[in-house]
Computed example of a mutant assay.
Amino acid sequence: MPNVHPRRPGRGYPRSIVGRAGYHLYDLACPITPDTWTSALWGAHSATSAALQVRDGGERSAYAICRPPGHHAGRDFAGGFCYLNNAAVAAAVLRDKYQRVAIVDIDVHHGNGTQDIFYDRGDVMTISLHGDPAEFYPFFWGYETERGEGDGLGANVNLALPRNAGDNQYLDALHIGLSHLRDFRPQALVVALGLDSYKNDPLAFLQITTTGFERIARVLSSLRLPTVLVQEGGYLCEDLGMNLASFLTGFEAEQLQQA
């Protein structure tokens, strides 16, 4: 674990392992242990496997139960319990077949690592719905003024929600995000599936209900895109499994209705 973090990354790269830890680990939620790499790598393999099922296996959708999660991990940094960006890995696999891929992140926290990876790329759109970073982790990323740069200008969409926003307000924001997505015309979709926007989550900031997850899933499934669902957050509470079941049931039901 680091004991110092650089205020201006890129101004120097230390030889010291403690300095390098501070350079690459932007918070204290990503300690490195002897088994960290193996665990993170197999989490990324889960995302790869799901993406291959969609890309080459003929499946309309697949669900990757990734642990540790990944959406806070950027090109050269880790944070927020995330070491490798599983959603970005899935998108990269899909890009081998599809020219345009979209990532929609519904975790309660901003997908700052995903944003970092694709910020200057126009072939992968990143849309994140999350608690307002002015008062919620990760604090320094996730503002609506962050729209991408270079080829990626306009392909990064942040929708910051106020504390205690519920199902209807969330779905209104989701429809705004999907209007950008439709203009982008993606050929495949990755959903960074966070369940920590639940009203009784231990880190509760938003007020999404169990039924709300089903409604969100139906909207995403209605896009009729080849889709990889990549598990992100969702902290321990009695309703965690029920919320996952609600999302997956809604997603599948919408697909069956389209068939």
Rank of each mutant, 00 (worst) to 15 (best):
N3Q: 10
P9Q: 11
P9S: 12
G10S: 00
G10P: 00
R15F: 10
S16M: 04
V18E: 15
A21D: 15
Y26P: 01
D35S: 14
L52F: 08
V54F: 02
S61R: 06
P68S: 01
P68Q: 03
G70E: 06
H71F: 04
R75L: 13
F77Q: 00
Y83K: 05
A90E: 05
L94R: 04
Y98K: 07
V101W: 04
V104L: 07
G111N: 02
D120E: 15
R121W: 06
T126D: 06
D132N: 15
F136V: 02
P138V: 07
Y143G: 12
E146N: 02
G150Y: 02
D151H: 13
A155Y: 15
P162V: 00
A165H: 06
Q169W: 06
L171H: 07
L174D: 03
L178H: 09
R185M: 14
A188G: 01
L189I: 01
N200V: 12
P202S: 11
A204P: 00
F205L: 06
Q207I: 00
T209F: 09
T210K: 11
R215A: 14
S221N: 00
S222D: 15
P226I: 05
V230N: 06
Y235D: 13
E238I: 04
G241L: 13
F247L: 00
F251E: 09
E252M: 07
E254Q: 15
